[in-house]
Design a protein around this nucleic acid. Structure first.
Lengths: 215, 215
DNA sequence: CTCGAACCGTACCGTACGGTACGCCTGCGA
DNA sequence: TCGCAGGCGTACCGTACGGTACGGTTCGAG
């Protein structure tokens, strides 16, 4: 998918970004509230301009999701001196970023929008979100895991399995419950437990894949 | 939520179930294809009947999701003689059912529909899916876990944490990727690995929470 | 046989929204 | 100062769809 690459080239003027911000706001406020008229009014621009810039409604939607999803940036991790302590810190950093991203309203909205889109024949938005979400994490995490394996800090049959286990241990049922609108999972509720969950997930991951006295 | 209970009372006539089947088929075929006209044509009934039976479009949608979601039934597990071997079999059974359910087209469609619904102000569909999905599993799994803890087969700080870890280890990133329409996750592709994934997840869970020589 | 309830098929209405056209204003270069 | 490109606001069109109305048919009860 050249989508993730295209994002860097497809740069938007400040005015266009203002429009995209308005579109995103409408999406967050009310998922299906993204009508061309509403965006135009919110951004104080004409519908004609919207169609000139983004082609059609789907183009606007794609641009909005792409532009916003690309903002999610995973942390760079220091790979120079890999010891068990640095590895733990790195993993915790990944877990923290993953969790804080996932519980954010923007992420929830983007995922919901992409899933709604995927419920029809279209898969473009799903690909964008996948590419900037799970796949981005995988790309960043796998090298770390493999370096740690080479340094005899971790042991696993395949880095793919290790990555997916890490994902599962961190995300658990939080994302699907948030996407489904579970009222018993308030954002502040989850937020308060992030640090504990991060530590638990990292501990568990190291218990499963850490070599020797990993704990 | 009295929703799950209401389902048992709210029984549908065969003719009504045929209508709901038509509605579900349309949902599966094309998420937004559930127009009243389409359902009426597919089920060979009149729109007037649809409105008489289900009130409005949302009522039809709710009835369809409710009726279908209630069909998901978790396995009953024998709790009489709990030893480590029986526990492992039970956990594998849960993992297998959870995975096979999640990757099914019907489950994907129901979750997508509920998430789309949740993207607007409405949370009823989300609650139904939650109640018949994750929460149903939790209700069934927790007693097993607690019984196993009482039998000194498992050790965990809280059964809630243990349940969520199990969920994460089993589901990993499969569900979100399927919901987003990840093309690299074909159903047959996942299906072929179910048994291996079930075993891995169970092993990992027991490694984390099993008491003593759980493995 | 008759009546009425349930239901099918279809025509119809109102509205919301995607998309287009057009008039007007502003700013800028010649 | 003139002209024009870009863009705002609004009016407008066509369509899709939710919801309603109504005539015709079937079927079972009395």
């Amino acid at each position: 998918m050249a989508l993730a690459i295209k994002v860097n080239e497809e740069t938007f003027t400040p005015r266009q970004q203002a429009v995209l911000t308005a579109a995103l706001d409408l999406l967050v406020e009310n998922g299906d509230g993204l009508t061309m008229t509403a965006v135009a009014r919110r951004a104080s621009c004409s519908k004609e301009t919207l169609y000139k810039w983004f082609g059609d409604r789907d183009g606007l939607l794609t641009a909005t999701v792409q532009w916003q999803a690309a903002k999610v940036r995973m942390p760079f991790v220091d790979r120079s001196h890999l010891n068990i302590k640095a590895l733990r810190v790195s993993l915790e950093q990944f877990a923290r970023d993953l969790l804080t991203t996932i519980i954010g309203e923007v992420s929830i909205t983007l995922n919901r929008t992409a899933i709604t889109h995927a419920a029809q024949e279209k898969d473009s938005l799903g690909n964008i979100v996948l590419e900037n979400g799970p796949m981005a994490i995988r790309r960043r995490l796998k090298p770390i895991l493999e370096a740690a394996r080479d340094a005899r800090l971790l042991r696993f049959p395949s880095s793919e399995e290790a990555y997916r286990t890490f994902f599962g241990l961190v995300v658990r049922d939080v994302q699907i419950r948030l996407l489904l609108g579970d009222k018993s999972l308030t954002q502040s509720n989850v937020e308060a437990n992030i640090e504990a969950d991060v530590k638990t997930a990292t501990d568990q991951f190291l218990a499963l894949y850490g070599a020797k006295t990993a704990n």
